[in-house]
């Protein structure tokens, strides 16, 4: 009962923070699993599960209107089940994925419900009622948080035993396979990130980053710095048609932009 309450509250609270503070990434698995772990008395497992899930869920981000699998609920419940049943990261992974896929529909539902609110929002705007608009905005968020609380609470209260029985019946061979799959899954995440960015003309930059690590083992931060320098050289030194003959005002503007 107590555990279920804690998990429910954490899910609701993290979502509240995420959307009240401008998407600061507190719903990413690396944070969610750690907090769930700390609350359930096993920070170490939380950290390890968080690291594993963060990689797998790397590509699941909300860009535009498309709703990705629900990372918060998946990571939160997956971690909680793993810790409650004294299991490791593989179990968390096995559970987090299907849960995240199922929970996707919570968001879809909320986005539909809140669409109905928009008529009311327009009325408030027409009356210049800014307080009402803010209340409605926060109210819409609280509705979402409340749903997360209920889902978290119910899933842990009624689901733990069933999940534990299910997990104990998974054969070892499948668990090994899940471990292999865990190493493979980040590929899907990275491919999703690449999808809007990579074209035939710039695929070499991806290969460059890959090779710098594969052959030379340069740390990622180092490769980032190389990337920044390279981008600067390509954009400014060989900056296309109008690269050489800009007047000084333009250059100042651009420098200012980069200061930002």
């Amino acid at each position: 009962m107590q555990t279920a309450l804690i998990v429910g509250i954490i899910l609701a609270l993290l979502w509240f923070i995420e959307k009240m503070l401008g998407t600061p990434m507190v719903i990413r698995p690396i944070v969610v699993s750690t907090i769930i772990g700390a609350a359930l008395g096993d920070v170490q497992t939380g950290l390890l599960v968080g690291a594993t899930l963060e990689l797998v869920f790397m590509g699941f981000i909300q860009v535009g209107g498309a709703v990705p699998p629900d990372v918060l609920v998946g990571a939160g419940l997956g971690t909680a089940y793993a810790i409650i049943g004294n299991n490791g990261a593989e179990v968390a992974l096995a559970l987090a994925l299907p849960i995240a896929l199922l929970a996707q529909s919570i968001k879809v539902l909320v986005f539909i419900i809140r669409s109905w609110f928009m008529d009311y929002a327009m009325k408030l705007a027409k009356a210049a009622n800014i307080k009402g608009m803010i209340n409605l905005n926060v109210g819409g968020l609280l509705l979402h948080c409340a749903l997360y609380f209920v889902v978290g609470f119910v899933a842990i209260l009624f689901g733990s035993n069933a999940v534990e029985a299910f997990v104990n019946n998974i054969p070892d061979a499948i668990m090994n396979g899940l471990e292999v799959a865990g190493g493979l899954l980040p590929a899907v995440g990275f491919a999703l990130l690449l999808l809007p960015m990579m074209k035939k003309t710039n695929v070499l930059y991806f290969l460059l980053g890959f090779s710098l690590l594969a052959y030379m083992n340069i740390p990622i931060l180092g490769i980032t710095l190389f990337g920044v320098v390279l981008a600067f050289i390509i954009v400014y030194e060989f900056g296309g048609k109008n690269g050489g003959d800009q007047d000084t005002t333009d250059k100042e503007d651009e420098e200012e932009l980069f200061d930002v």
Binding site: F190, L193, L194, N202, F206, L207, I223, L230
Partner: peptide
Amino acid sequence: IVGLMVIGAMTA
């Protein structure tokens, strides 16, 4: 460019 290189390195 930076993004692709970073993702490339992370993939590796």
